[in-house]
Write a protein that binds this DNA or RNA. Structure first.
Lengths: 351, 351
DNA sequence: GGCTACATTGTTAGCGCTAACATCTCTCCC
DNA sequence: GGGAGAGATGTTAGCGCTAACAATGTAGCC
């Protein structure tokens, strides 16, 4: 009877079986060097025989380290957040941390306070916010002052480190690609107000147009869903001036393509379309979508790096918060083409 | 100086400030009834003032409850697993549990043993497997005998409870929908071998064909990606006998649509296509895709239910494992239509 | 008034582990 | 051969909390 308490073996049980003290077992478990090989082997064998697993709570209690990172993520069914979370978890695990997740539905205003309070109960060592929209100020007040934090796609507050994709340059590249193809200007279907990614893409788009001396039409607002892209597409299809559209994400671009197709607007002959995200489906849209690729894996990895720096530095926050910007890449496919002088020059009705 | 140790306040600090014993603080925190209202208020105020948070490790150590569930998930960037995970987390949080996740890349053979070992270190109270492929036997051997487990889309082993979508009936419904439209038979683009979902859909498809007395062509194998669907689509486009295709997921269906479009095969005029999953994009494919909708939210909720039953019942495994089957629904859109007598009857070349 | 019953609070003893210190056992070298 | 020094192991004292029990106070009732 190795475990007299009925709760699975504890360190003392292993110690007894191996004929050593529990502290020696602890040393073996923690890779302490000063243990004789023969002893180490005996302890290992005893651990194996009993199927012993160390009690993480007891360990955390005394070391004050839980090895748990918290993640608060909005809308993890979307490709972007899901990919970021995936990369994040891989990187965290590689660094020896567990990831405890709270996923929130994308309400219009996001209050993180309940989620933060919830996670704080779990003694997390650091927190990642995958909440790419502006959050309420009271959310940030709920952050314990000493808790290491990193915001992904954030910029929520000046004193929180941020890891983000270079939305601005990505949008500039997309817009310039269209201008370089001879389009007089570029329309934009934007993401919803309050999303930082949406704002960055608008700014990049505007900036590229301004640099080229092109007029910036009003952006057509969307909400990331294919449906909103469809609605935007129907509007743009009616305007014969439109020859190039930069859409703030691939899902909406799909809706735009669908609307154009229904309206008899040919892509890329009549109108060129560029998306953002490079979801796996984009290459197989009709036509295959030119879009901006984001390195979500790297975002995840860098986020963990930034967080671990704070944890290991034991510095908490304060000082100059890091700001890591991950570059994008334009994937050129068949949805963009050289501009005709105007849509009417193309002639030909559909099918 | 409320916290003399430099590590944030502990229960004793709260007790001192409120003028009670630490045990009374504990009682307030745990909602014990026998505390005078005035005392409770004083304790609450002291907690508030100090910003006290209970140490979860200490609590877990003595209660032997961590309130943490582990999740091992494969390929969480796919819509299905991501949605399941999302529903799961919501349900777990509602039940007062944290969710600690390990996400694995979809290798060809999946060994869960390292992930299980990893999570076991964290003293989880239960484990959810979102690993919709057959896993190695050694994986299951790595499961601690007393750990409550539920498999989502699993059926990995006879003694593990399972919550799954009714793949079979979903596939039957999709296939019969096509047969009812007058198609002589239905081709199938399948998911990769080893995935239980893929197998369930093949079986449902075969069964529906058999029931209708239709011949079952060899399934065209895919791997869930749009690219593989595209390849399958090119093959099917060459065969003029093909008038109806049931594709095992929407992403591959997208590839099929793309291939058909390139090959001049019109959907639904020449060929009808049905997908599986009902991803948000499906409605905006060209043409909008008829597909099988799955209730991932319910899958998540039911999984947590099954798991909590085991935890609360303290029964561990054994006995008749639960098997919960969540129904599907066919979303009929524009990619399916009544069969012509043969593809040649349709006439008309493209564009 | 005194005794019972119960509500309220305090005291004590661990949960299983690690850190710090104490102890013991070897070498090694003059 | 004996003392220094290092390596290997054991002993002790908590980490912060909850459970069990003990000790109060407080009505209620004959």
């Amino acid at each position: 009877m190795p475990s007299p308490n009925g709760h699975g073996p504890v360190m003392a049980d292993v110690a007894r079986l191996a004929g050593v003290s529990h502290q020696t077992v602890s040393r073996v478990l923690n890779g302490h060097p000063n243990v004789r090989d023969a002893t180490r082997e005996r302890v290992r064998a005893a651990i194996e025989e009993l199927g012993y697993r160390r009690n993480s709570s007891a360990r955390a209690l005394v070391t004050r380290r839980t090895n748990v990172l918290g993640v608060i993520a909005v809308d993890t069914t979307l490709y972007g957040p899901a990919s970021t979370l995936f990369g994040l978890e891989q990187a965290a695990r590689a660094a020896g941390y567990f990831v405890s997740i709270v996923s929130l539905k994308s309400g219009d205003t996001v209050s993180l306070a309940p989620a933060i309070g919830y996670l704080a109960e779990q003694s997390i060592e650091g927190l990642v916010l995958i909440t790419p929209k502006r959050v309420t100020a009271e959310s940030l007040a709920a952050l314990p002052e000493t808790l290491p934090v990193v915001a992904v796609e954030g910029g929520q507050a000046p004193d929180i480190p941020v890891v983000c994709v270079d939305q601005f340059t990505g949008a500039v590249t997309a817009t310039r690609h269209l201008l370089d193809l001879g389009h007089r200007t570029v329309w934009h279907v934007s993401g919803p107000a309050g999303w930082l990614e949406a704002e960055g893409r608008i700014q990049g788009w505007r900036s590229a147009l301004r640099a080229a001396g092109a007029a910036a039409p009003d952006p057509v607002p969307g909400d990331w869903t294919p449906r909103s892209g469809y609605a935007a597409g129907l509007r743009l299809a009616r305007d014969p001036e439109v020859t190039a559209v930069f859409v703030a994400n691939d899902q909406m671009a799909l809706g735009v393509l669908r609307a154009f197709s229904e309206a008899g607007v040919r892509v890329p002959d009549d109108v060129s379309v560029v998306g953002f995200d490079d979801i796996p489906e984009a290459e197989f849209f009709t036509p295959p979508l030119t879009t901006v690729w984001q390195d979500f894996t790297q975002v995840g990895e860098r986020s963990i790096e930034v967080l671990l720096e704070q944890i290991d530095g034991a510095a908490g926050r304060g000082g100059d918060p890091a700001r890591v910007v991950v570059p994008t890449r334009l994937a050129v496919r068949a949805s963009t083409a050289r501009a005709a002088r105007s849509r009417r020059d193309q002639g030909g009705t559909r099918q």
